[in-house]
Write a protein that binds this DNA or RNA. Structure first.
Length: 571
RNA sequence: CGGGGUGUAGAUCAGGGGUAGAUCGCAAGUUUUGGGAACUUGAUGUCGCAGGUUCAAAUCCUGUCACCCCGACCA
């Protein structure tokens, strides 16, 4: 392709609203343009990269037996009502009506459609397993779209759905996808982790998030450098922290005027924060009071609290009235003395403490010398792992101190079990003659987010640095002065030779000054640049610049195509 | 949904009751030509939209729309 035929508008300045490097660079390099908040057009360069990522995804999906289909974006409300999600999905779903007033949704995901497709067609276990996927636009009415392609309302997503006859089969499909996803992100040149994730309401099965490591990411993950453990901060399981035994002192109530936070209590009583026990009061959908107790220096993990209390779905901050009804007061709560109105959940590590501080369930008073094993009423409390992981906590697998990092979630895989096959009554006839529900899984990749994540991870002051596999062009050939016919002819020769060798190459034949073209090359981030100048014409060599290493290499004209092919293999 | 902010040329922004501005970009010309060239000339605006105040509104007031940021949390 010739640059004179390519619409690649580059900008010196980035739009005021762009905050993330990837957003700025995609804008400046002419990859995307905004149509509305969270809605973007992809320009030729951006779409070339998107297509390359999609091609990698297709190859890996196909290799695992996935079959590409295309399902409707516009979906009838009836299916969503049948699965119960028309009500549950809430404001996140884009809804519309046709001229007759019939309701539709713009698909945020496709479990309903794909399940209804299968239930009408697939009758026998002999047709299983099946894996269908598609790559298309998805719609989610985000509360606050931001960060360019990272959180947008319309985005390109690959979604695959697996159908198996039993749980073992489903797990095999899951493993295949885990493997495929790892290969996809490796091929895209990304540093990532497959982290154990919470699959929330879906329950039962496995879930992994594929997270690209980047400080600007919105998800926080804990990982171990020794073994392969990695988990989202909400999911990470924690071991009990044992405390050194010490002589137990008798429980005592002391006055602590105005000490309604852990910080104030710790300073007033002059005790280390690890000797304090913090209370967080929640309320669930049924307005039950749930009080979580963790060590003062720990944080409560709401997801874990929900999982430890039967029947709890969502948690909200509890109001004063609920707390008073449980015979306590905000800021001074303790498991000792709370009445039956409160559901008490205590972190496992709290039970290891001795001579600690808790509130006294009355204003301006705390208990000291609290030893939970001795002082808490074991019949009234639930002990569980309910705290948030912190940097340095021991790895649940090998005990090494965990590291924390931030990342961008680019893909997630789930086992769904029978959730949707039951809701939509999708069955098949098994070998033993009985009717069974399909065991399902679903697997998504955000294509635009993958592109953005690659930029977040690979850029410098001059622009983007693409991995060869997903670069809009692999090589750019730049005649320093395209008005010089000898230079242009030489550049064309090299360009033709590279194209014939199967290289995805761009000829920058624009009659721009050299500086302008070089700046654009660096900004757009082509992995290799071939420079043609009077110098190279005289010497009979061609000059190569490697974008990532900033190295300049000279190859003899005769062997340059071969050398470039070799070099590309390493990028 | 709550709080804050911004809407002026293609982009980034200044201006602030009386002729619509700068820089970059764009077009033409001359010179230049290995890291965003110099000079000359030129084109480009419902000053987000609607109402109001005024002799006069881009400017003040009201409403509205769009966009951006922060929050919706650990007593």
């Amino acid at each position: 392709m010739r640059a004179t035929q390519l619409y690649a508008p580059t900008l010196r300045e980035s739009p005021a609203e762009a905050e993330l490097v990837s957003h700025k660079l995609m804008y400046r390099a002419g990859f995307i343009r905004k149509a509305a908040g969270g809605i973007y057009s992809y320009l030729p360069l951006g779409w070339r990269t998107m297509k390359k990522i999609m091609q990698i995804i297709r190859e890996e999906m196909d290799a695992k037996g996935g079959q590409e289909i295309m399902m409707p974006i516009m979906q009838p409300a009836e299916l969503w009502k049948e699965s119960g999600r028309w009500a549950v999905y809430g404001d996140e779903m884009m809804r519309l009506k046709d001229r007759h007033g019939r309701e539709f949704a713009l698909g945020p995901t496709h479990e309903e459609i794909v399940t209804s497709l299968i239930r009408d067609e697939v009758r026998s276990y002999k047709q299983l397993p099946l894996m269908f996927y598609q790559i298309q636009n998805k719609y989610r009415d985000e509360i606050r779209p931001r960060f360019g392609l990272m959180r947008s309302r319309e985005f390109v997503m690959k979604d695959l759905y697996s159908f198996d006859r039993d749980v073992d089969g489903m797990n095999i499909s899951y493993e295949k996808m885990y493997d495929a996803y790892s290969r996809i992100f490796e091929r895209c040149g990304l540093k990532f982790r497959a982290v154990e994730a919470d699959n929330g309401a879906i329950g039962g099965g496995h879930s992994h998030e594929f997270t690209v490591l980047a400080p600007s990411g919105e998800s926080s993950i804990a990982y171990c450098e020794k073994c392969n453990f990695a988990a989202s901060d909400e999911k990470a399981e924690l071991k009990i922290i044992h405390a050194a035994p010490e002589e137990l002192r008798p429980l005592k109530k002391v006055l602590t005027p105005d000490c309604h936070t852990i910080e104030l209590v710790k300073n007033f009583l002059n005790v280390p924060i690890e000797k304090t026990i913090k209370a967080v009061a929640f309320m669930d959908d049924e307005e039950r009071l749930i009080v979580a107790f963790v060590r003062g220096d720990h944080d409560v993990n709401e997801i874990k609290v929900i999982n430890s209390v039967a029947g709890a779905n969502h948690l909200y901050m509890a109001g004063e009235k609920l707390i008073e009804a449980a015979n306590s007061c905000a800021g001074f709560m303790s498991p000792i003395g709370l009445n039956d109105k409160a559901i008490i959940v205590v972190d496992q590590s709290v039970m290891e403490m001795s001579n600690a501080v808790t509130g006294a369930n009355e204003v301006d008073a705390h208990f000291i010398n609290v030893t939970p094993r001795r002082d808490f009423d074991a019949r009234k409390i639930t002990v569980a792992d309910i705290r948030m992981v912190q940097e340095g906590d021991p790895c649940p697998h090998c005990g090494e101190p965990l590291k924390m990092t931030r990342g961008i979630e680019v893909g997630q895989i789930f086992t769904l079990g029978k959730k949707y096959s039951e809701a939509l009554n999708a069955t098949f006839l098994d070998e033993d003659g009985t009717t069974k529900y399909f065991e399902m899984g679903c697997y998504g990749i955000g294509v635009g987010r993958t592109m953005a994540a690659a930029i977040e991870q690979n850029n410098d002051a001059d622009g983007i640095i693409w991995a060869r596999a997903i670069a809009p062009f692999e090589v750019v050939v730049v005649p320093v002065n395209a008005k010089d016919s000898a230079q242009l002819a030489f550049a064309e020769e090299i360009y033709n030779e590279l194209a014939a060798a199967g290289v995805d190459v761009l000829l920058d034949d624009r009659k721009e000054r050299a500086g302008v073209k070089f700046k654009d090359c660096d900004l757009i981030g082509y992995p290799l640049r071939v420079t043609v100048s009077p110098k190279t014409l005289d010497s009979g060599n061609v000059e190569i610049k490697v974008r990532r290493s900033e190295e300049f290499l000279n190859f003899a004209r005769e062997t340059c195509t071969e050398k470039i092919l070799e070099l590309l293999e390493t990028l």
